[in-house]
């Protein structure tokens, strides 16, 4: 589904990713862990098409197409979704309106029938209940005045509604209490299927206890330095990242 090969990325002439390679197949869940500043969020933003990030080398292929040539919305139409680490506030634009407009834009791009207001409400009703989002939420401006937890749950609601084939969760677990983390994890697990893939970008292991990954990768110095299964995450949780750094510099 997704092939990243030898990816080099700079931000304001500062190299952040230095030859990252990763392959993700349908149905897989990959966790990307790493210390602060290792380039985890940069990877997420580059995949979504943020133009402040400059790809200096390497390639990304998504469903056989060159992802780097696509506009952010074209990537979304192909099924790529990013749950933002810091979801943006958009004053005056209400939540339901944005979500419906996004859903219909994607449906239109795939030559599917657009939904009307009634169908839309039916579609999101259960998802809102699952994410424990009250109805009043829909009439509030996008993320404006939301608490950290509300923003994250809102991101997952959008993900459930848009049903992406590849979802990237950028530190969606950070700043959540135990209950909120459970709600988010339930939402994510609900989306898992043999056709869908997930990238979980996280700093901690606790989300991975609830959303069990098939692969765990450790990112350091802008490259994947170690890969393994969920046990690697547990080991990292116990021993921290220092040993990885040591191992990397030893190489």
């Amino acid at each position: 589904m997704l092939q990243i090969e030898n990816l080099h990325v700079c931000v304001e002439d500062q190299p952040i990713l230095n030859g990252l390679s990763l392959e993700i197949n349908a149905g897989q869940v990959h966790a990307i862990m790493g210390p602060n500043g290792s380039g985890k969020s940069t990877l997420a933003q580059v995949l979504a098409g943020r133009d402040d990030y400059k790809v200096t080398q390497g390639s990304i292929t998504f469903y056989g197409k060159n992802l780097l040539e696509m506009q952010p919305e074209e990537r979304a139409h192909l099924g790529l979704f990013l749950a933002f680490q810091y979801p943006t506030e958009i004053p005056g634009v209400n939540n339901a309106y944005l979500l419906k407009a996004a859903l219909n834009a994607q449906r239109a791009a795939r030559n599917e029938q657009e939904v009307d207001a009634f169908e839309f409400m039916n579609l999101i009703k259960n998802k809102m209940e699952m994410m424990q989002i009250p109805k009043t939420f829909l009439n509030r401006s996008v993320n404006e005045g939301f608490s950290g937890g509300e923003k994250k749950r809102n991101e997952i609601l959008q993900m459930l509604t848009l049903e992406p084939s590849l979802a990237i969760l950028d530190e969606t677990d950070s700043g959540l209490d135990v209950d909120a983390l459970r709600i988010v994890a339930d939402g994510v697990n609900n989306l898992r299927s043999p056709e869908r893939s997930l990238i979980l970008v996280t700093h901690y292991e606790r989300l991975l206890e609830l959303v069990v990954p098939d692969f765990v990768h450790v990112l350091a110095g802008g490259r994947i330095v170690k890969s393994g299964d969920r046990d690697l995450a547990r080991y990292l949780d116990e021993h921290g990242y220092d040993w990885v750094q040591t191992e990397v510099s030893a190489q």
Partner: peptide, 18 residues
């Protein structure tokens, strides 16, 4: 804001309108 809307699949024009 523009990037957020476009990531959700809205065209740039629609995102600006919105």
């Amino acid at each position: 804001q523009l990037f957020y809307c476009r990531q959700r699949g809205l065209s740039e024009e629609n995102a600006i309108n919105m």
